[in-house]
Amino acid sequence: MKNIYLLFILTLLCACRHQPGNKSGDLIELFVDDQYEVKNLSELVESIRVIPLETTDQSLIGSIADLGYDDGNIFVLDGYNQLVSQFDENGQFIRKLVQKGNGPDDIQHPQMFSIDKLHNEVWLSNNTNFMRFDYHGNYLGKRDYQIGFTDWYVDEDYDIYFYTGKNDNAHNEDGFMTGDLTLLTTNDQKKTWFKSDIIGYYKPNMTKVSFGSSHPFSPQPDGSVTFSYTFNDTIYCIKNKQIYPKYCVHLTGNSLPSEKLDNMPGEEIDKYIQEHPSLQWNMNSVFETPAYLLFGYGIGFHAWAWVLYEKATKKMTNVQIKDDLFGSTFLPIKDSSGDSFWAAMMVENMELNPKLTEFIGKEKYERLKMLSPEDNPVILEFTFKEKF
């Protein structure tokens, strides 16, 4: 294992940007150099559970655009029709939460979904409102919004944090242009954080290159939320309507300062990355569990590396994961629960290695081999080893 520098500090004096200024606890600095290792997935994981999703006419899924797990329920977003299907923890189909159509109980413009694990609800975005369901499929009503966003999180008071990703929300005609994080309360009050100079740069009908943030919200058992946004080197904590920096990540190799990236139009970023193929950039896909902090970063446009910080040992691993078990080119982690991580994989993309039997046994391995490309995707639940 390649250990990387790790330093604890007791103040907020570091190179990262801390726009909110709210302090709580100690800020942890993580220094990531460019000497990552290539590790096999089989070397990194402690356990793997493979869950084939039941394939029926009612449950058929073209591809999985997103997934979430909570309390024995697996929710998946079909990348083709944007509808959400619910399965139990063994992969048995339960229901589609709603059908697409123009009826009073249908969804007209499905886009994304989010699990509200605090209230055991699923929220589906529907152009200008959310449709809410409980885990039993009961419809709970709608919540209107007028804001452009790419993800959201519902807190204990049903206030909504939108990840707006530098969208210009001037269409609200209230003079309110959002930053990367916008709070919308139940009485429609707004507050925004992390507004960059790029806000307002793009004009209507102007073609633009956009770089999103994967998994910006990572809920924690204590009710707080770990939050990150594109081109930022700080990972934040949201709790009790307050935001404070929690981790400061330094990509210390051949990297471009996050503040410069944050204020560059997408076309300029695209050109710069093309000209610097070994650049470390765009910390993304941030997951925090009681035991780990896991995040990825790009290496130019051609590679992706993961950083795993073990909280108990205060050790870090900088690694490219080679999937020697399922043969995927990229491990698509979509959610975390407890200390488990969840991913999805299409059957046609799997090249099973007999080494997988060490984790799931020969009988389950043989059943996996019998799946066909026409079958539904499989869900992976896995845990990392305490020490690599």
Rank of each mutant, 00 (worst) to 15 (best):
Q189H: 11
G68C: 09
E54M: 04
K23S: 11
D222R: 10
F8V: 05
D168V: 13
L30R: 07
R132I: 15
F149V: 02
E351D: 12
D78W: 03
K241D: 11
T11S: 00
V378P: 05
D151R: 06
F341A: 03
G327E: 14
L325R: 03
V378C: 10
V38D: 09
Y244L: 01
A305P: 03
I199V: 04
D159Y: 05
S114W: 04
Q108N: 14
Y5H: 08
M346N: 11
I115R: 06
K260N: 07
Y244V: 01
A343H: 05
F231Q: 05
M283L: 09
A170N: 14
D34L: 05
K385C: 05
D78T: 02
I160H: 05
E89M: 11
I199M: 02
S214P: 09
D116S: 08
N318K: 05
I64Q: 10
L356D: 10
Q99Y: 12
I333T: 12
L183C: 10
D105E: 13
S372G: 08
E358F: 07
Y236F: 15
D106Y: 05
W306I: 08
V249G: 01
A291Y: 10
G62F: 13
G101P: 12
S285N: 14
P219F: 01
D323V: 03
R367V: 07
L352R: 01
F359W: 09
T182W: 01
G137K: 14
K315Y: 06
L60N: 11
P257V: 02
P104K: 03
E259W: 14
Q274L: 09
D151E: 13
K315E: 14
N102S: 15
T383D: 02
M346R: 11
I94W: 00
E37M: 11
F176T: 01
G91R: 08
T56K: 08
I28D: 00
Y229K: 15
T230Y: 12
H250N: 13
F326A: 07
F326W: 02
D339M: 01
Q189M: 07
